[in-house]
């Protein structure tokens, strides 16, 4: 791992990864309490692309994501209290308890929404970019996708339109090799890369190590610069790995869809461990920095869970609210 970025940026990336990991580990540890009562897809092992994207994008840039969105939301700067409250079904949640883990939103930092249908927000992101183009905003849009999105029709339809209109978009693909339990080799032909497919559609495509946060940052920052310069839609494929089960808090290597050896080889390449070693070796951080960061993050997470716990549930009447504008609601 060659390291040439500023100490400030390096520390931010490491801290953001540690924070995302700690949030997810806390959710996993407390999931059994039955207070977070919604399907939850954890990002443990995949923290680097989210932290890198959060740092490479401007706060005013926009992002959308899918079902595994906690890391993307936090990386972009989404409010932690509102996320934990949302997963807990509280009225202080980012969607007032209507969305849960799979429907996160924090427009104040440009995180415009994540939804539960694979590929579902891909055209929404393209449409946001179209609006920016027509209304002459200078934001770019990051569309977080996984490898399975590359099997949906809507990806190709959306990428094609983005290419025709040269829209300022980054399709940021975390390739974690599995769609639930289905491995890549039953879903893609041998010898064809996702980035190669994206390039054939007309996206400027690059690929790299998604467990190397520096490499991830460099690829995303370069793609962002090209998109901002009017060079059209970009595609960045980052190879990474999901440590835990597809949905839920447990490890699931025992059920036989992937090998323990494969899991261990990826865990050896833990993005946080790798980057911690690099920064310690370069005297960018020391143990005291790590201890302080961990302590602050733990306090922040404890406070977020306490906030969610103390927050009220939405009033039952909210189950029927906000379906339409007030003009139409008055007709119902």
């Amino acid at each position: 791992m060659v390291h040439s970025m500023s100490p400030e940026l390096s520390r931010r990336l490491l801290r953001d990864m540690i924070r995302i990991r700690a949030v997810e580990e806390t959710i996993a540890a407390r999931y059994g309490e039955q207070k977070m009562r919604c399907p939850t897809h954890l990002s443990i092992g995949q923290e680097a692309p989210a932290a890198a994207a959060g740092a490479a994008l401007a706060r005013t840039d926009l992002a959308v994501s899918g079902h595994r969105a906690h890391a993307h939301y936090l990386g972009k700067g989404g409010d932690l209290n509102a996320m934990i409250a949302e997963i807990s079904g509280k009225v202080t949640g980012c969607a007032r308890g209507r969305g849960g883990s799979m429907h996160l939103i924090d427009e104040s930092v440009g995180f415009m929404g994540s939804t539960a249908i694979v590929g579902g927000t891909v055209p929404v992101g393209v449409g946001l970019a179209l609006s920016g183009s027509l209304l002459e905003r200078n934001d770019i849009v990051c569309i977080f996708i996984g490898d399975a999105v590359m099997e949906t029709g809507v990806f190709f339809e959306s990428a094609n339109f983005a290419a025709v209109h040269k829209l300022p978009i980054i399709f940021l693909c975390e390739n974690n090799l599995y769609s639930v339990y289905s491995p890549l080799d039953v879903r893609q032909p041998q010898g064809r890369s996702l980035a190669g497919v994206a390039a054939a559609v007309g996206l400027h495509a690059t690929a790299g190590d998604g467990n190397d946060v520096c490499a991830s940052y460099d690829l995303i920052a370069a793609a962002a610069a090209r998109a901002r310069a009017g060079e059209g839609p970009q595609f960045v494929e980052l190879a990474t790995y999901r440590w835990r089960e597809h949905c839920g808090p447990m490890y699931d290597n025992n059920i036989g869809y992937r090998s323990e050896a494969e899991f261990e080889s990826w865990k050896e390449r833990d993005p946080i461990k790798l980057f911690t070693h690099v920064l310690q070796a370069g005297d960018i951080i020391d143990q005291a920095w790590l201890d302080a960061a961990t302590r602050e993050i733990t306090q922040e997470i404890d406070a977020a869970f306490a906030f969610a716990e103390a927050s009220p549930f939405p009033d039952p009447s909210e189950a029927y609210a906000d379906l339409y504008s007030k003009e139409v609601m008055a007709c119902l």
Binding site: L62, V126, L128, L130, S131, V154, E157, S158, F161
Partner: peptide, 13 residues
């Protein structure tokens, strides 16, 4: 399908 989602995104934007 995409052009419908693009309309949704454009409306949100």
């Amino acid at each position: 399908n995409a052009m419908t989602g693009i309309g949704i995104g454009a409306a949100l934007g």
